[in-house]
Design a protein around this nucleic acid. Sequence first.
DNA 1: TGTATCGATAAGTTTGAACTATGGATCAGC
DNA 2: GCTGATCCATAGTTCAAACTTATCGATACA
Lengths: 309, 309
Amino acid sequence: MDQRIELRHLRYFLAVAEELHFGRAAQRLNIAQPALSQQIRQLEKIVGVELFRRTSRSVRLTDAGATFRPRARDLLGRLAADLDEAGRVGRGEAGRLDVAFITSATTIVSERLRAFSRRRPDVQIKLHDGFTVDVLAALERGTADVGIVRDAEERDGIDLSPLRTERFVAVVPAEHPAARGQRVEAATLAADPLILFPRTAGPQAFDVNTQPLRDAGIDVQVAQECSNWHTIVMFVASGLGVTIAPYSVTTLLPAGARRLELDGPPAVSRILMATRRGDNRPLVQAFTAASEPVTDRGHHWDNSQGRPS
Amino acid sequence: MDQRIELRHLRYFLAVAEELHFGRAAQRLNIAQPALSQQIRQLEKIVGVELFRRTSRSVRLTDAGATFRPRARDLLGRLAADLDEAGRVGRGEAGRLDVAFITSATTIVSERLRAFSRRRPDVQIKLHDGFTVDVLAALERGTADVGIVRDAEERDGIDLSPLRTERFVAVVPAEHPAARGQRVEAATLAADPLILFPRTAGPQAFDVNTQPLRDAGIDVQVAQECSNWHTIVMFVASGLGVTIAPYSVTTLLPAGARRLELDGPPAVSRILMATRRGDNRPLVQAFTAASEPVTDRGHHWDNSQGRPS
DNA sequence: TGTATCGATAAGTTTGAACTATGGATCAGC
DNA sequence: GCTGATCCATAGTTCAAACTTATCGATACA
């Protein structure tokens, strides 16, 4: 009947093509010579043409055989490589990881990525930046494998684990009366227009971010909404108002903006690693495993990294 | 033990990857479901990682499986194509044919090639031109598969079959006394210096070529040896002497040379197809089979193709 | 809670790849 | 020109493993 070709046929064919001797080829394959003859004959039947021209004294490749030899060789090589790759992907040593993150955590992400891709050079990383809501949405719809968000609330189907915390600081225009000092009490800022992201962009993050103001008894009213921290800080530098920001977004301030430590009850922003619940793929686990929570890294930067001159 | 991978594994894997359902995949493969489960498990053991994540309700590809799927698909496609190509090569429908030929038979070769490659578009033809001795040598050492030679003698290991015959004509300078007529008797040329290829380039061909002169009782002495017809004819045009040539090399004569029909006993040059004895490869047979002997095609060209103006 | 669906497991069956023994053809050497 | 050696093909047998049927356990749905 119509027999299906198997890799065995290719392996046997290559052995005979190399040895040009059924006996020796069979020996190399650890089978008996008749079995080899049978399989080669079977292969020839499948292909429909002779691959070897044999006399009782010699074995030669036909044109068809000579054409097929390098292809068969290549095929087996490819397969071995593909199996190996699949294995490495399965073990998390290779593959692709889609990382979504909030723009204000770029520093953290780049640190982590540098370390991660040194340990897993064959993992291709695709980055997607956005707001916390976007990051979580990407995670839920499967566009991203891991997410890095700020002050997100628990939600179904998403696991959150703390990455690090940062204290909040105030950012004011250089002409602001408080800008002459190093510190400020939140209550002092009551009269200033507040520039911040819209609450809809991240209700939880918004509430945490404005906690210092509420602690000071201020009724929080956003005078100017901006969607990302870079713009917010630029507006502050332009004298349009003040803001309260996680420390790390103030490491590089434009001329005209000043960072001030906040007096009062300590308030922290929490940066979180987000994954789909039950997603235990090795690559995801490897990425999250590398993440140990660090408390308030902001403190370390106080003297080593000031605002730009 | 360490089981070897077979194409069956790939075929089964692809079926499950496509259906994402062991029952339906098994049905499509015309096997029972447990057999499929077993083989997939075996494949996973070979690769070393899970390819599917199954619950009792659903089947999903793992990252490793998703990586492997297109590769497996590609591999099977390639193999099918390679088998097909080998088959076509075996049947002489594809492959490569090395054709060696004498320069003075270019016209014949190009005619034949045009017809041949129209019928076998997938056959790649490699051309090698040279003298009869070179063509035969290429054939013997395996550099060429078929050869086209002129007036060669039988030799061991080479089969010769007649392709066509051509009459000989005389070529003389335009200032030659005989150039005023259309015909000449060989004896008339006795006093003119003879320009011809060296006898060593092809003893048999040389003897046939000079037969008209010997028939006329002339003692053949080559005054000027040239290795190819083009040069010989150019020398004739320069007035250095005369020559006797097969008709087809005179279809395009330089200004200053004139073709004259030879009176006397008809002498013909035979163009032969040469192959290695016992070389019954389909491509060689297809090429030679297309060759039916044609007698003295030269006649047809008499009026349709004159010398260039 | 019962029922249907689906993959895994267990045990028996069959297919076919490989084995041993032998035949037939070719080549070398006496 | 016969003899022995070499080598691939053939014949018949064996055994591993792919496949079968029967069944289980888990999950989803009504």
